[in-house]
Design a protein around this nucleic acid. Sequence first.
DNA 1: ACTCTTTCTTGATCTAAGTCAATTTTTTGT
DNA 2: ACAAAAAATTGACTTAGATCAAGAAAGAGT
Lengths: 214, 214
Amino acid sequence: MSHSAFACIKAAPIFSQLPDMLIEALVKISIHQKQYAAGSYIYEPDDDLSALIIVDTGKIDVLNVNENGKELLLYTLHSHQVDVESSLFTDALHHHFARAKTDSSVCMIRRTDFQNLLQENPKLSLHMLNVYGERLTELEQRQISLSLQSADERLLKYLHEIAAIQMNNTFELAITKKELAVSLHITPETLSRLFKKLVTNGTIILDKRKIILL
Amino acid sequence: MSHSAFACIKAAPIFSQLPDMLIEALVKISIHQKQYAAGSYIYEPDDDLSALIIVDTGKIDVLNVNENGKELLLYTLHSHQVDVESSLFTDALHHHFARAKTDSSVCMIRRTDFQNLLQENPKLSLHMLNVYGERLTELEQRQISLSLQSADERLLKYLHEIAAIQMNNTFELAITKKELAVSLHITPETLSRLFKKLVTNGTIILDKRKIILL
DNA sequence: ACTCTTTCTTGATCTAAGTCAATTTTTTGT
DNA sequence: ACAAAAAATTGACTTAGATCAAGAAAGAGT
């Protein structure tokens, strides 16, 4: 658990390569260490908060609601990740909101302060453009994955990604299956059936949360 | 049909608000008026073209292929629109490609030239950040619409959007139904059935391409 | 150890949308 | 105006995944 704004900002991958001078400039305009209990809202639809949010500890869900009140998880921010969206640059109304999934603490930088800093630092602007470009690519990839891959392909891809990160074909799921279902955009029932299929196929061995990829 | 690079760039909404000085700087580094026949490729997956593309005339599809060779239409660029993606800022491999849908002509600005200009012009950087922010929001909206709305809701929304733009409840489809189906991410057969449903519901009157929203 | 709550599983059923195939309508080229 | 090509419609069938409902298993609090 970090305890200074400097540490919080420096730890964020999107800022970490920046020269310390710029980081200190960011620290100066940041609002330090806000605490949020699990389930509480960091910002809500139509809020004019307009700030850049850096997660120090905990997890934060960024979601969207449609007219019928149905929620869609856009992404979950983990420690040191930054919510670059939230209309930091555009004035467009946003219909999404951020909610603490676990007890969390965040740093914030207000939109106007950040924009002023950008004006004076072309390097920072260029850096942010790169970040946005990556986010864009990522979002596109996700959209492609959702419309071109079936649920079981998505699940398998997810499992292989974990195995790759852990560099081990045996691992435990870090999240509940319910949460996994949400992030794969399927129901828990469907996920349960997909797992069953993978087991009978002999693609995986599954014992509770423990998974062995064959 | 425009005939100078200046006109081409000035006509693009994302650049039009910029001071003429900057536009001229953009013109200087732009590659003028390339012609593409319908069906030909502007860039392909893994190409290292890395240029910003401004459509002068015609229509250009930006698509993606998955492993099975299935195509997904990301968006269609019309006259004066700019392809801000195509790894302009990131080095990440992109799996997508651009193909002329109709005979088209485009202006291009090479990545390195553009980045150099950005370095010297914080205003331009900030401007581009705004553009990216909007694109990001747009993409998110689309993803939400695709996973939260059913096909008939998407169709109706599309029809209402046209009516709103034309400020008239009676209008003609500017594209073929086949193309509409692609952009709604459904098959032509399904679209045909949806239209039929809307007609029997009494939601619309349809005669060939002419539509009256009731 | 024993509730109470939440997660997970399983079965039965439903539905939106895709696929395949055949036909009709519209558009295009000459 | 006519032939050929492309677009649109229709029907029969399949399928992935959702929904509803009911149990089983696991976890948490006392």
